[in-house]
Amino acid sequence: MIRRHLPVLITLAVFIVGYLICLAQFPSFASTRVIGNLLTDNAFLGIVAVGMTFVILSGGIDLSVGSVIAFTGVFLAVAIERYGINPYLAFVLVLGIGALFGAGMGLLIHAFQIPAFIVTLAGMFLARGLCFVLTTDSIPINAPAYGQITEIAFVMPGGGRLTFIAIVMLVTFAAGIVLAHFTRFGANVYALGGNRTSAELMGVPVGRTTIGIYMLSSLLAALAGIVFSFYTSAGYSLAATGVELDTIAAVVIGGTLLTGGYGTIIGTLVGVLIQGLIQTYITFEGTLSSWWTKIAIGALLFAFIVLQRGLSAASLRSR
């Protein structure tokens, strides 16, 4: 039992140790204000990471999510500001487009047996290209709905704000946990990551599941794009570059095996928070360049991959 949850427990331990270090240096880390900001600042990353966890669990990869986030922002800005479409309608439209986009990628991956890496790489260029077709400018979004939504927040004791977008992220995680661990779809995702051939011979609907997985990933990327646009109040073609890699890093640090089959959604939440923690620490520290975030994440990622290798080798040997 303990052994099975070891990767998540280690991730959790890293987070707690990291938090304590931050706390020792900057006592204000205990305030709900810092915690509220940690959740809000990483909301969009958390949402995409949920989708990415499903993709990686199934043994695949989705490189298109950063571009889909940017496309969503640009689409919303153009639709709302240029064409005067109701923001809520625009949200629904863009979520629909995202889902279709992902389903298309899933279909290609399944029907032609093309590696997910290639298909989603193409998807990445396609979505980014579409941004530039819509506009090359950064368009601010001034719709009153945006102001209203960003105003929604629970004030926690101590003055911290649990914002609407933080809540959206937490709800996404809760839904992701239920989907992964308590539905047939979830079991099928793990089955695909365990061994695709065996899964097929056991009667798992491989095609349907593959399409569902990439559809979910792009849908959540579009949702993350909406959240991101609340956060920045603008749509810009070059936004969110490299987010796909941050997301993959968060998932792996969260204890999910890159080769698929093993991992949890809750681990991904901790992975996202660890990244947020490093970022916050560097902001507080003030003298370090923000590139140190990348270096720290790189080091962590490396450590975790080595650790996973060690763990899986150890569990093989103990049989």
């Binding site: 047939r184 079991a187 793990y190 089955a191 065996s198 899964a199 056991m202 009667g203 798992v204 089959g261």
Partner: peptide, 14 residues
């Protein structure tokens, strides 16, 4: 079968 799933899930998947 699928080594990463539980025995119960292997028996009842689908």
């Amino acid at each position: 079968l699928l080594p990463n799933l539980s025995v119960a899930e292997n028996l009842f998947i689908g």
